[in-house]
């Protein structure tokens, strides 16, 4: 079966998600070391078991106005690059059909699905970590 799982989280009351095969770990929000002269969406760097990992503030990256404080960090690996995304709160995991709507193309979102009458955007990680 062509099934896939996504990890669903909230950004300012809207639902977003990442395909779970890119997700390595989930943490509580943590303080990080600021990166001088970097893009504003780069939150900082942390030491995760000997690996230096860059945290990306997903709301800043997606240009979403920031009112809520982030509670979680999702550690992802994409193209052998490890990085963390700060998100408001993790909601849970959903099963999706791999083919559903993933040809949708708009900026950082590569598709969306609907669950319980709520729309869940699927984030395009490749775009997130590519400098623009």
């Amino acid at each position: 079966m062509d099934l896939n799982q996504i990890i669903v989280f909230e950004l300012e009351n809207k639902l977003y998600s990442i395909e779970i095969n890119y997700v390595m770990d989930v943490y509580e929000y943590m303080e990080s070391i600021r990166v001088p002269n970097s893009e504003d969406y780069i939150e900082g760097i942390i030491n995760l078991r000997g690996n230096v990992i860059t945290l990306i503030n997903l709301k800043k990256r997606l240009k979403i106005d920031r009112n809520k404080k982030e509670k979680n960090v999702i550690i992802c690996e994409f193209n052998k690059e490890k990085f963390g995304l700060t998100v408001d709160e993790i909601i849970g995991i959903e099963n999706i059909d791999k083919t559903v709507n993933t040809d949708y193309d708009s900026g950082f979102v590569k598709g969306f699905i609907e669950r319980d009458n709520r729309e869940i955007m699927i984030i395009d990680l490749g775009r997130i970590i590519t400098k623009t």
Partner: peptide
């Protein structure tokens, strides 16, 4: 590497004795 490459003024990262990363 990656998203951190080519940032002005920074040559690399290290992890300090107390476990904190530093540029």
């Amino acid at each position: 590497k990656g998203i951190l490459s080519d940032i002005k003024g920074l040559a690399g990262i290290t992890i300090l004795n107390d476990g904190m990363p530093s540029f």
